[in-house]
C-alpha cells in the first residue's frame, strides 16, 4: 500500500532523458502541464499523450512503473471524473430516475480523467529521471529572478527538495507505525470503515511526533555542517545545455503551440 508510492522517487539510469539538463526537464514539465490545462479536444490530448510516450521511451522507464505510481490516486481520480460527468449541465442523453447524463457531461468526465492521468504520469517522469539534488540545482537556477524581490532562490529550492525527500521518508515511517499497530490488533487491513478510519487517526499522532523529531535532527545536522541561510552556494557540476536539450525544448514548444492553437472543437 504505502510502500508502493512511486511518486517523488528517482530511478537511477543513463538514458537520454536522464542526461538532459535538469533546468530543461523542469521547463519541459511546466510546458507539458500548461499544455494539459489548455487542451480541450481529442487531438490535443492525443498530442500530449504522444509527447508523454516519447518522453517515457527516451527515459527507458517501464510504463508499468508509471501505472504503479497512479494506483494510489485511481479512486480519487475516478470519483472526480464521475462527479464531473454528472454535474455538467446539458441536454439529457441517458436517464436513470432523477440521474441524468448528458453528452457534454460524459465528454467533461473523460477530459478530467485524461488530464489527471497525463498529469501524474508527466510529473512522475520528471522525478523518475532527475535526482533530488539535480532537481534542487535546476530549480534554484530557474528561480534566480526571485533575487530581485529579496527572496533567496536557493532557499526556496532547498525547501522544495527537502519536502520532496520527506515524502518517501514519511511513507516509510507510517509503514512502520502501521505495522506496529497492526501487530497489536488495530483494524488497518481488516474491520469495517469506522474502525479503519479510527485506526488511521491513531496513526497521525505518532507520525507527527516522528516528523518533528526527524526535522529537528535534520536542522541540527545542517547547522553542524555550517549551513547558513542566504549564503551563496556553488555547485560541483556546472550545468550546460547540449544539442539534445535544445531539441527537446524545440519539440515541446511546438507541441505547446499546436495545442494552444488548435480550435476548441469537438
Amino acid at each position: 500500500m504505502l510502500q508502493d508510492i512511486t511518486m517523488g522517487l528517482y530511478i537511477p539510469g543513463d538514458s537520454i532523458a536522464h542526461r538532459l539538463d535538469p533546468r530543461v526537464k523542469i521547463i519541459l514539465a511546466v510546458c507539458y502541464v500548461i499544455a494539459l490545462i489548455c487542451a480541450s479536444d481529442i487531438l490535443s490530448y492525443g498530442l500530449a499523450a504522444l509527447t508523454l510516450a516519447g518522453a517515457v521511451t527516451a527515459a527507458k522507464i517501464k510504463p508499468s512503473m508509471l501505472l504503479r505510481g497512479m494506483r494510489g490516486f485511481i479512486v480519487m481520480i475516478a470519483f472526480t471524473a464521475v462527479l464531473c460527468a454528472f454535474m455538467t449541465p446539458g441536454a439529457s442523453w441517458v436517464q436513470w430516475g432523477w440521474l441524468s447524463l448528458s453528452k457534454e457531461g460524459i465528454y467533461k468526465g473523460a477530459q478530467v480523467l485524461l488530464s489527471f492521468i497525463l498529469f501524474i504520469a508527466g510529473t512522475s517522469w520528471l522525478t523518475f529521471t532527475t535526482s533530488p539534488l539535480q532537481l534542487m540545482e535546476g530549480m534554484s537556477k530557474l528561480l534566480y529572478p526571485l533575487r530581485y524581490i529579496k527572496v533567496s532562490p536557493q532557499e526556496v529550492a532547498l525547501i522544495m527538495s527537502i519536502s520532496m525527500r520527506f515524502v518517501p521518508i514519511m511513507a516509510e515511517e507510517s509503514y512502520r507505525i502501521l505495522n506496529a499497530q497492526k501487530a497489536r490488533g488495530a483494524y488497518i487491513d481488516s474491520g469495517n470503515i469506522t474502525q479503519r478510519v479510527q485506526a488511521m487517526v491513531s496513526l497521525l499522532a505518532p507520525l507527527f511526533i516522528r516528523a518533528w523529531q526527524r526535522s529537528e535532527t535534520l536542522s541540527t545536522a545542517m547547522l553542524c555542517r555550517c549551513y547558513q541561510s542566504g549564503a551563496e552556494r556553488t555547485g560541483l557540476r556546472k550545468m550546460f545545455m547540449k544539442r539534445a536539450d535544445y531539441t527537446a525544448l524545440a519539440l515541446m514548444s511546438a507541441v505547446l503551440l499546436i495545442i494552444i492553437a488548435l480550435p476548441d472543437y469537438y
Binding site: 512502520r176 507505525i177 505495522n179 506496529a180 497492526k182 501487530a183 490488533g185 481488516s190 505518532p206 511526533i209
Partner: peptide
Amino acid sequence: KKNIRQVRFQIGIAFQFPEYQLF
C-alpha cells in the same frame, strides 16, 4: 485471511525502536 488478526494477538512482536510507536 479473516483469522490473521487472531494470529497476531497470539504472536506478539516488538519492532526495532518500539518506543517510537508510543502515542
